[in-house]
Design a binder for these strands. Structure first.
Length: 269
DNA sequence: ATGACGGATCTAATCCGA
């Protein structure tokens, strides 16, 4: 029996309208079956559907808003059961889910954009950090398997959980994205839901690995002060089928880049 | 010093990102 592959990509694009050119270049070169975008920064009717359709991505689950946030999942295969959950009831657009049918059967794919959390790592004085912690708390209710259906969870989770997920563990311990309350919280989400961190399943946890580099650096590559904020998780049974994982570091050097790079997981069923 | 850029918005200065 012939085996088949399923390639899933996630990318915080920081404005899909501004960067539709490099998104199309990326899709043409890597041909993922599905791409999950975060920070599309547009309303649903402003989403550049046509550009995706022309490349064969005829199916989409778009959940945007004006100016900020927004997530979208585009696919070469039909999507069903599309819905969004308003985490922390803020009325912002940070989640969209859908079901795609693969050779292995239906898989639910969650696409998340977790709040950044502001500057100060104190929920009592910083409402944005409070919002982030509450968001993470609500994610603890998500299970990696729903009935019979295995789930995948991807996106910009804005937390770098491991010491090797940041350029300096010591220097970032008090910096939002790597504080113990956040990293413990995210690990709790993983344990409670039975999720496997597929990036670290494939790339040894001892290895430094980043998916985001600040715009504020003169030479992002030379300084290399990055963080692993983007994630790909799945049910354990899907982890057994993971064939490849690629963090496309080169994308940070493209013209007018996003500050995040695409991450691609390939499953073999 | 991590490091001072980059996007969207009722085009100018302001909010937001992390």
């Amino acid at each position: 029996m012939a085996s088949s592959t399923f390639k899933l990509a996630t990318w915080n694009i920081n404005s899909v309208r501004l960067r539709i050119g490099i998104v199309c270049d990326f899709l043409e070169k890597h041909r993922p079956d599905m791409l999950c975008l975060q920070e599309i920064k547009c309303q649903n009717d402003q989403f550049p559907r046509k550009a995706f359709e022309e490349l064969g991505y005829k199916h989409s689950a778009v959940h945007g808003q004006k100016g900020y946030h927004g997530v979208a999942t585009v696919s070469r295969h039909p999507l069903k059961d599309i819905s969004s959950t308003d985490y922390v009831a803020m009325g912002d657009t940070r989640h969209v889910e859908c079901v795609v049918t693969t050779k292995r059967g239906p898989i639910k794919v969650h696409n998340f954009y977790v709040p950044a959390g502001g500057d100060e790592a104190d929920p009592k004085t910083n409402p944005k950090f409070d919002h982030k912690l509450k968001f993470i708390d609500e994610m603890k209710l998500l299970n990696s398997t729903h009935g019979e259906m295995p789930n995948v969870l991807v996106g910009d989770l804005n937390i770098a959980p491991l010491e090797t997920d940041v350029w300096s563990h010591k220097q970032l311990l008090k910096v939002v994205s790597h504080t113990p309350i956040e990293t413990d919280g995210l690990i709790d989400v993983m344990n409670k839901g039975g999720w496997t961190d597929l990036i670290r399943h494939h790339i040894p946890p001892e290895e430094k690995l980043y998916t985001w580099w600040s715009y504020r650096s003169r030479d992002w590559s030379a300084a290399d002060k990055g963080r692993r904020l983007d994630h790909v998780w799945s049910a354990p049974e899907l982890a057994e089928h993971l064939h490849d994982m690629l963090v496309l570091r080169e994308a940070r050097g493209w013209e007018k880049p996003s500050d995040h790079v695409p991450v691609m997981a390939t499953f073999k069923f």
